[in-house]
């Protein structure tokens, strides 16, 4: 497979995952904002922006925040610009993806471009849901209409990396704000406002229902962290995502022999092992912030190594082979 094609598929997938991630968390926080008392809403959007590694919002008003994060063209990324970037990457490799995938992404692109930017009070939820569903449909089509060859593996890789990084960032910021030692002893767990925020965190990862099946509806923050970090079966938990990532890497290594993949496999393998065998108590001992940072750094390292091994490898190294 051409290196450029692999790179485009990888980025198409990353950008679309990013758009969907933004849509999910904005939807949850938009709802929380309506339900929660005013004091609980202070700093809400600042945290959301921070978890997306964006500069703080320019204005505080909800409308301005929503408009910036959904449609903004000036900030580093928004839903619209992420979808546009995903489409631009797809367009470069139009012939490598199925027509169904292309048409779906194209439809999504046109839908967000023509969405009403002004009156979002009534429309914003519909818009966010449309983005989420559009992305889900795309993933479904990717799985069922594209050969699960090397290109598909690069798509998996892009999605997993983006998802792991985003989830880790979100967990870290949420934990810093809402986790209190004392609340663990309280009979009700977190206070009412905090309770809703922990549910919100689960919803951000569409994990509320899955979580309840394992832990019933009692929200213990420690359980939430454990679920989102270490659950082996839930597709948004970091452990699951890293398993997927490792599977994709192994497949790519088999399909493209001769490239130097030891380094990236070592990093990914170590991360996978850590997540598989670590107990939540050990994580707490190390500290959530430290753990999440370590996960994000490993992901960035994996990204760089993949790029260097398959896309931008130095010519002279390839000539020696």
């Amino acid at each position: 497979m051409l290196s450029r094609v692999a790179d485009n598929l990888f980025w198409m997938s990353r950008y679309l995952e990013r758009a969907e991630h933004i849509a999910r968390i904005v939807l949850v926080h938009h709802n929380l904002e309506l339900e929660q008392p005013e004091e609980a809403n202070a700093g809400r959007w600042k945290r959301v922006f921070q978890s997306l590694a964006l500069d703080p919002p320019i204005e505080d008003s909800t409308n301005s925040v929503l408009s910036q994060i959904c449609f903004g063209v000036e900030s580093r990324f928004s839903i619209t610009t992420s979808i546009e970037s995903a489409r631009n990457n797809a367009r470069q490799v139009r012939e490598q993806i199925s027509s169904e995938m292309w048409e779906q992404l194209n439809r999504l692109y046109h839908a967000v471009r023509h969405a009403d930017h002004e009156d979002h009070n009534g429309e914003i939820e519909e818009f966010l849901i449309a983005v989420k569903e559009g992305a889900h449909l795309f993933h479904g089509l990717t799985d069922s209409t594209m050969s699960h060859g090397e290109g598909w593996q690069f798509i998996q890789l892009g999605q997993s990396l983006e998802r792991a990084i985003n989830t880790a960032a979100q967990l870290e910021i949420h934990y810093r704000e809402f986790y209190r030692e004392a609340s663990l002893d309280s009979e009700w767990g977190p206070d009412a406002a905090g309770y809703l925020e922990w549910i919100g965190l689960l919803r951000c990862a569409t994990a509320f229902e899955a979580f309840c099946k394992v832990h019933s509806a009692t929200i213990d923050p420690l359980n939430v962290v454990e679920f989102l970090l270490l659950d082996a079966q839930f597709p948004h938990s970091i452990r699951f995502v890293v398993d997927t990532l490792q599977t994709a890497l192994e497949a790519i290594g088999r399909l493209s022999p001769g490239r130097r993949v030891h380094k990236v496999q070592r990093i990914a393998g170590r991360l996978q092992a850590e997540l598989s065998f670590t107990q939540i108590e050990e994580v707490m001992e190390r500290g959530i912030a430290d753990t999440m940072q370590h996960i994000r750094e490993s992901c960035h390292e994996i990204h760089n190594c993949v790029h260097e091994a398959f896309v931008s490898y130095p010519v002279e190294s390839a000539l020696e082979v």
Binding site: L2, R4, E95, E150, S256, R259, A318
Partner: peptide
């Protein structure tokens, strides 16, 4: 046409020349 012939559709940036040989950059090497 690339699809009809089962050949790779490349752009200039996919190719490079070294010592008068043309290569394309693929995930499994040149």
């Amino acid at each position: 046409l690339a699809r009809q012939m089962g050949i790779e559709l490349v752009e200039g940036r996919d190719l490079l020349v070294h010592d008068n040989i043309v290569y394309m950059r693929t995930t499994s090497g040149l």
